[in-house]
């Protein structure tokens, strides 16, 4: 397999604060990777490093390019959508399409117009006249028309209602994603998109705390729900996290065989959201 992103010991300081503190990870081609972490964990800094928008220490190759010195080349094959609402308010939909067509060698104007045709965005409308959801649709149409090998999305659906969010991810998955492309995505709404990810990368305090394909989660992590009376015995097997739910106790285990846990209660694979909460709990101040 080929690596789209290869990062070794990424570090970045803002004054005394370490935004990235030796993060290392590898992202293979044809994956949809969720970069997940609490606020201030270093997600956005990592994305900015990957996109060549910030300086940093350490080694980083994106599609074989160094984002620090080869950004212009890199950006022909990488596309990103940072947050919502970065399209300038004065821009008309028509102008956005024409501009992208004229400066981007991999932009397919026909496709952009097709996608926009399915929305209610008038080609002559300015961004300032559109609703937040429509602005995101416009931006997505521009991005989907770019034949990029890596797409980076930083909280692309922040502030959108559920209908737009659902449509956004459906379009992304059905009309865009294929094995040639890689998508790196950060979001706070983990529950909503966890079925989308093929891989997850948890980041906390500038370090990678979990990096795994979703299909391996079941082998590695188990959630055991036990009755209160069995909790003490189960606790002896050293869960790394537990919480009380309706009088029962849910415990999370790492690298424990299912056979060993099964006698104590119900077993299931934890959701990404559960894992995230569990992994982050220890790293947050009480």
């Amino acid at each position: 397999m080929t690596a789209v992103i290869e990062a070794r010991a990424l570090a970045k300081r803002y004054g005394a604060k370490r935004a990235l503190d030796g993060a290392s990870f590898r992202i293979e081609s044809g994956r949809i990777v969720g970069l997940i972490g609490p606020n201030g964990a270093g997600k956005t800094t990592a994305l900015k490093a990957i996109l060549g928008l910030t300086s940093f220490d350490g080694e980083l190759k994106v599609l074989g390019f160094d984002p620090r010195t080869q950004r212009d080349e890199l950006m022909k094959q990488v596309c990103f959508m940072a947050d919502v609402a970065v399209l300038p308010r004065w821009l008309r939909a028509r102008q956005a399409v024409e501009y992208c067509r004229d400066v981007h060698p991999r932009f397919d104007e026909q496709r952009a117009r097709e996608i926009l045709g399915k929305t209610e965005i008038p080609m002559n409308a300015r961004v300032r006249e559109l609703s937040k959801g429509m602005v995101t649709q416009l931006h997505l149409a521009l991005i989907l028309a770019i034949d990029a090998r890596l797409l980076v999305l930083d909280e692309p659906t922040l502030g959108l209602d559920i209908l737009y969010r659902r449509r956004f991810y459906d379009t992304l998955l059905n009309d865009y994603f294929d094995k040639e492309r890689t998508i790196l995505l950060t979001t706070h709404q983990v529950e909503e998109v966890e079925n989308l990810f093929t891989d997850v990368l948890f980041i906390s305090h500038g370090q990678v705390v979990l990096d795994t394909p979703v299909e391996n989660l079941g082998d590695r992590f188990l959630q055991l729900t036990v009755n209160a009376d069995a909790a003490a015995r189960a606790r002896a097997l050293k869960p790394f996290y537990e919480r009380e739910v309706f009088g029962r106790v849910a415990m999370l285990f790492e690298n424990r065989p299912a056979a060993e846990l099964a006698p104590y209660g119900e077993l299931r694979t934890p959701t990404i959201a559960d894992l995230f909460v569990a992994k982050m709990q220890g790293t947050l101040p009480a």
Binding site: A3, R26, P105, E180
Partner: peptide, 18 residues
Amino acid sequence: MNTETTSTAPAAPGRPVT
């Protein structure tokens, strides 16, 4: 796992933009 880092784009170069 045999791994390597890609160095150039295998995809089509796209339209020329001078």
